[in-house]
Design a protein around this nucleic acid. Structure first.
Lengths: 190, 190
DNA sequence: CGACTAGGTAAACGGCTGCTAACCTCCCGG
DNA sequence: CCGGGAGGTTAGCAGCCGTTTACCTAGTCG
């Protein structure tokens, strides 16, 4: 039998799906409770507040993204390999956890101030990993351009939740190819 | 002197910016009023409800996108030209109206049911324009693939609001190049 | 000049919602 | 066997917020 997920985790994944669909303010405490079979205020046995749920959810996802990305880059030997690994990592994440990706994209504004600072810091470090990797493979991108390009690639890959009409593997292949192609126009064009 | 924008339009643009920054539910009626120098309930002289503001905002943006896109495609003579025009059109829109683009991406869920139906219908027709154009330039994409690719390109271009650290023209050039490159990997790769 | 209208105000209401309080019930270790 | 903590429950409060109401201007037009 599978490792039973702790109640906290059950709640977090359920909440993530609801937040992704209806937005943070569009979901009530009672909705989240109902989604895990308990009702309403029982959640306060596990979380200090609704804000705390979002906070924990977003910091954990940001940490996972950063750690995984860093690990892939470290494991790669060439710059091109690193970029491919990074793209693959982010694509897998977006396809396997579309709810979390959606919440991270849309609900940063609903975080508590200290939580938002923490999450932003993690995200910046993740972007930095991308920027360095991009600049190693596309040397004629200056830093601001590489940063803008990284954000654009995030947008491309994170668009997944809006178009699930392809099966997972085809989607992964398509997104990876598009992402990599979008990052190497200079070689072909100019 | 410029054509004075009607009060309604002032309100809509102010509301768009607020909705983009804080989310629909994160903005109060009083905030919107304050942003245009009047206070609170005065808005009800111009709109039936807060929902109606979002509804009008999103239907108008969807109509503009569709009409503009269709026009560019009709004006083009070759398929490649049509695709370039479409990309340029969407990029310009995203760069000139980042708030509207953000709201359209994030706040579909907050629409009234009939409004959402209307907006969805318009969006689908816009996507259809893209799908047809993409398939004319990349014939080996089947329809679902082309649709997924279109959504991915939207994500890429709409990522603009998150990374304004480049000036407008550089940003437009970068996004256009990346978008076009992401759509034509097959020619180069296989 | 008088009356109607467009547009604004402040005050109040009513419902929704996050959170707390008080209470219950297993389960488990000494 | 019994006491306490973990994890539920329902009822209720408090505050926020969209909306309505009643009232007040300033133009404008017959």
């Amino acid at each position: 039998m599978a490792e039973k997920p702790s109640r906290r985790d059950q709640i977090l994944t359920a909440a993530a799906e609801l937040f992704a669909r209806h937005g943070f303010h569009g979901v009530g405490i009672d909705d989240i409770g109902a989604a895990v079979g308990i009702s309403g205020p029982a959640l306060y046995r596990h979380f200090r507040s609704k804000d705390a749920m979002l906070g924990e959810m977003l910091t954990s996802i940001s940490e996972r993204l950063l750690d995984g990305g860093q690990a892939r880059v470290d494991a790669a030997t060439t710059a091109e390999e690193a970029l491919r690994a990074l793209v693959g990592w982010h694509v897998d994440f977006a396809l396997d956890d579309p709810a979390l990706i959606t919440v991270q994209m849309r609900n940063l504004a609903n975080l508590t101030d200290p939580d938002r600072r923490r999450v932003r810091a993690l995200q910046r470090r993740y972007v930095e990993v991308w920027v360095e990797t991009i600049r190693r493979t596309v040397p004629d991108f200056d830093e601001p351009t590489a940063r803008a390009a990284a954000h654009a690639v995030f947008g491309l890959i994170n668009s997944t939740p809006h178009s699930a009409h392809l099966d997972r593997d085809q989607m992964a292949a398509l997104l990876s190819r598009m992402a990599l192609a979008s990052l190497t126009p200079v070689v072909v064009t100019s």
